[in-house]
Amino acid sequence: MTAAMHDPPAGPLASGLSRGLLSVVRIGVAVMWIQNVAWKRPPDFGRADDNGLFFWAGQAVEFPVFPPYSAFVEVLFLPSIEVVGWIILLVEGGLGAFLLIGLATRFWAVVGLAQTLAITLSVLNAPHEWHWSYYLMFLAHLAIFATAAGRWFGLDGVLRPAWSRSSGRLARAMVRLS
């Protein structure tokens, strides 16, 4: 009886339905990044027409949220948007791709948190923005990280058994990143 009292209750993730719903969250967040990488348009990322990434990044200067970040955007980000834009494009494309298939999910959840923070610091005070959009983005990535959401209906779940048995450096790293 003592042992039974100390047995941990079956967690919600023991249910197939819960695991399926969690994969819906992961894939939904991936689709959000995929849809929004579409308007990061090289080569000038909107500088010529003051639209796209150039316009939205510029909101950090026009409506500052955190003055040091605004200074960074004004002095470094916007003048070199033809370079920084490619980095943003690759990061957001990678977020969409890797979260969609559930590979290295915890790593990409952390990248998503960082990118969400950058977006929040750019547009939180811009007109007509709903601040909870960005809080919810942050919380969704936190949930994906906390539940290691790629382990169900994702490639992390498929590949982790082999990674766990391997003594290779890459496999050990992938165990931690998934």
Binding site: A30, R41, L103
Partner: peptide
């Protein structure tokens, strides 16, 4: 298409490569 298609191609390409190599 645009960069969103790049993300789709990359997702399924990297996924199939990872599975195939494993």
């Amino acid at each position: 298409g645009d960069a969103s298609m790049m993300a789709l191609l990359g997702a399924f390409g990297i996924g199939l490569l990872a599975v195939g190599l494993a």
